[in-house]
Nucleic acid binder design. Structure first.
Length: 291
DNA sequence: GCCCAGGCACTCA
DNA sequence: TGAGTGCCTGGG
């Protein structure tokens, strides 16, 4: 990878395994908008960033070289060599091999744990456009103003401190529905220090997961999402309804319990299970496998 | 109007 | 321990 700054843009070249559409549309994050083909706007790290990908390069703007080094390299996981991992995974089985070929540009983002936690609490029983909507309402109402881009105001996702000012009815007004008290429970546990998200990063997968399960409305699926997308714990293999259908259809040819799927995934994909999940999810969802 | 969506809590056997 | 059911809300 090499990059340089040209005015307010960072131009990135020679990067393998990077496709902005696949990265954003594989279900790991919610605060992004498609501007046009290969052109997206994201809100992360209290910034509004556009990303334009062409055949030869990826342009991040507006961004300084400092932002790029301090924020975006880590956020987009740019220092990791995905080619080696993909080779390892592709040897596991033909289905995963196909899924990797289908979307070789997927990367796992390093997101903010708090935002990730609340976003996935919101995700239950909702479709992605709805989740995005609720996260936006909450940001607009409780988060800090970031910037106005193309006449649209953008707001950061509120901190636990900021969000704990919300009342249940405020969150219901943000269309959180029955999840409103769950969000407040998470606020309370984080704000009081009962659960310290910063510390989870340093705990082993199982221990961190057990801690997260103490939050109301956080079950195995949501815990795994947070562990994978915010804490870099790639042993996590979130099993949602899509992955269940996809795995049943590709690997089992019958109905199977969530537990069995998790067990199978750990055996089959090992320490890279989480990345395998992303390839299978994107592949299966785009092709509507099992639906 | 009905059904379902990237789960979970709660209840009951 | 496992199966069954209800849940805000919006879109098809």
């Amino acid at each position: 990878m090499n990059y340089r700054q040209v005015k307010d843009k960072i131009i990135l070249k020679d990067i393998n395994s990077f496709n902005i559409e696949q990265i954003l549309e594989c279900g790991q994050c919610f605060r992004f908008y498609k501007i046009s083909e290969g052109h997206y706007l994201i809100i992360a790290k209290a910034k509004v960033l556009k990303i334009l990908q062409t055949d030869e390069e990826v342009i991040f703007y507006p961004a300084t070289i400092e932002d790029f080094k301090n924020l975006w390299i880590s956020y987009f996981d740019l220092n990791r060599d995905y080619d080696i991992i993909k080779q390892l995974l592709a040897e596991k089985d033909q289905y995963l091999n196909k899924a990797i070929d289908y979307a070789p540009g997927i990367r796992i983002l390093n997101q903010d744990p708090w935002e990730c936690l609340i976003s996935f609490i919101i995700s239950q029983n909702k479709q992605i456009p709805h989740i995005k909507q609720v996260v936006n309402h909450i940001s607009r109402r409780f988060g800090q103003y970031i910037d106005t881009v193309d006449n649209i105001d953008y707001f950061a996702f509120p901190t636990a401190e900021e969000l704990s000012k919300a009342k249940e009815e405020d969150l219901r007004a943000c269309k959180a529905g029955f999840r409103a008290p769950y969000i407040l429970d998470a606020c309370k546990k984080i704000k009081s220090g009962e659960i310290d998200l910063e510390k989870l990063k340093y705990l082993p997968y199982e221990e961190a997961k057990t801690t997260l399960l103490n939050i109301k409305a956080v079950g195995p699926k949501i815990a795994d999402c947070v562990l994978l997308f915010a804490f870099g714990k790639w042993e996590a293999f979130p099993v949602d309804i899509w992955i269940k259908r996809i795995m049943e259809s590709l690997y089992f040819n019958r109905e199977i319990s969530l537990n069995e799927i998790g067990h199978f995934a750990r055996e089959q994909f090992g320490n890279y299970a989480g990345l395998a999940q992303q390839y299978l999810f994107y592949y299966g969802r785009q092709l509507k496998i099992g639906k």
